[in-house]
Write a protein that binds this DNA or RNA. Structure first.
Length: 324
DNA sequence: GGTCCTACCCTGTTCAAATC
DNA sequence: GATTTGAACAGGGTAGGACC
C-alpha cells in the first residue's frame, strides 16, 4: 500500500514537501509545480494522497466547522481566508481536482495537529526531535538532512496511512469533506484492534502485550482483559473449551475493575459480550452444544474507529505464533 | 473607615503558518 | 515585521463582603 503525503506551499515558486510511504518506509522529495506533484503520483501510483493544506473554504466567516472543532479540542489552527492561507487553500482545491481527475483519492490532513494528537513535538520545538518521534512510531528511511517541508510531508503520509487502516477519523467541514485526524488512542492498541477484527488473535495479543508492559491502571487491566479474550479465541479455534473458559473468566476479572469507557471502548457492552461468549463455551464444554456460534465473538469498537471492513469471525490461517 | 481577600470584567498580549 | 482570526492567558481595575 503506497500513500503520498504533500506539505503544500501556497506558491509554485516555493518548494512543497513530498513523501512516498510504502511498508512504513519513506522517501521524501521537494517539488515546485502542480505538474511535478502530479507526476510523482503518476510514477508511484499511491492509493491515497494526503495534502497538508485546506481543501475547502468556509461557507461564512473565516473558520470552517472542522477548524472550530479542532480549536475546541485545543489544537491551534489558522483561519483560511487571509492572504497567504487563502492562496494555499485555492491551490489545494485546484490540486485536489487535478488528482481526482486522474483517479487518485485525496484527503486533507493537518500534520501540526496530528503531531499534537500523536504526542510528537512540533517542528518548532526542533526538527531533530520531530524526526526522532516519527522514527519511534515506526517510520523508516527519513533522511537526516530532511527539510521541515519533507518532515511534514512524511507526517501527512503517515496520517493518510492511518486513514486507510481505520486509525484516524474525519473531522467534518459540513460540506462533504473535512480534515483527517489521528484517533487519540495509542497506535499499538488500535493496531491490535485491527488485527483482532481480522482474525489475527495471536498478533493482536502481541500488539497489546507490547503496550501492556508499560501501561498504568486502569489501562493495564483493560489490556490484560483484551489479551485474555484474544487468547480464549485461539483456544476456541483449537477446540480447547476448558482453557477458553478459564481465559474468559480471567478476562472478566480484569475488565470488572475497569471504568465504563476506556480508549473509546464501551466496557459495559464488552463485559456483556464476554459473558455471552463464556456461556456459549460453557455449554460446549459440558456437552450441551456441539459447535460455537462465532457471531458471539466480542466486538471491540473504539469510538470513532470506522467499521470499513466486515469483522472476521474465524481465526485467520496466517495467525501463527511469532518465533522470538 | 481602613484593610484584606475574592470574584469578576475588561484590555492587551501571545500564539499558531505562510508569504511578501 | 506585517498580515489574518480566535482562544488562552496575564494583569489591572473595580465591586462587594468580612473583619478589626
Amino acid at each position: 500500500m503506497t500513500v503520498m503525503g504533500i506539505d503544500l506551499s501556497a506558491s509554485e515558486k516555493r518548494a512543497s514537501g513530498v513523501c512516498i510511504l510504502r511498508n512504513m518506509k519513506v522517501k521524501t522529495f521537494l517539488a515546485k509545480s502542480d505538474e511535478d506533484l502530479l507526476n510523482f503520483a503518476l510514477q508511484f501510483q499511491p492509493k491515497l494522497v494526503a495534502i497538508d493544506a485546506p481543501l475547502s473554504l468556509p461557507k461564512e466567516g473565516s473558520l470552517r466547522s472542522c477548524d472550530r472543532e479542532l480549536i475546541r479540542l485545543g489544537i491551534k489552527v489558522l483561519p483560511v481566508n487571509f492572504g497567504a492561507m487563502r492562496k494555499l487553500t485555492e491551490r489545494g482545491i485546484r490540486l485536489k481536482m487535478s488528482f481526482e481527475s486522474k483517479g487518485f483519492s485525496v484527503v486533507e490532513v493537518f500534520p501540526g495537529g496530528a503531531q499534537d494528537l500523536l504526542g510528537l513535538p512540533r517542528k518548532q520545538k526542533g526538527l531533530a526531535k520531530l524526526v526522532e518521534g516519527l522514527k519511534k512510531i515506526g517510520l523508516k528511511g527519513l533522511k537526516p538532512d530532511a527539510t521541515h517541508d519533507e518532515v511534514d510531508a512524511a507526517t501527512a503520509s503517515f496520517v493518510g496511512w492511518m486513514w486507510l487502516n481505520g486509525f484516524s477519523e474525519l473531522v467534518s467541514d459540513g460540506q462533504g469533506g473535512g480534515i483527517v485526524m489521528p484517533l487519540p488512542y495509542p497506535l499499538k492498541f488500535m493496531e491490535g484492534v485491527r488485527l483482532y477484527r481480522n482474525g489475527f488473535y495471536w498478533h493482536a495479543h502481541e500488539a497489546w502485550e507490547e503496550i501492556w508492559r508499560t501501561a498504568n491502571e486502569p489501562y493495564r487491566s483493560f489490556l490484560k482483559g483484551l489479551i485474555q479474550i484474544a487468547a480464549a479465541l485461539i483456544q476456541c479455534d483449537r477446540n480447547r473449551w476448558n482453557g477458553a473458559l478459564n481465559l474468559l473468566s480471567r478476562a472478566q476479572r480484569y475488565l470488572e475493575s475497569c471504568p465504563e469507557k476506556l480508549w473509546g471502548v464501551d466496557l459495559t457492552n464488552l463485559r456483556e459480550q464476554v459473558d455471552a461468549l463464556k456461556n456459549e463455551v460453557a455449554k460446549i464444554s459440558c456437552g450441551q452444544k456441539v459447535s460455537l456460534n462465532r457471531k458471539l465473538k466480542p466486538r471491540i469498537l473504539p469510538e470513532g474507529m470506522p467499521l470499513s471492513q466486515k469483522e472476521r469471525l474465524k481465526r485467520s490461517k496466517r495467525d501463527l505464533p511469532v518465533k522470538r
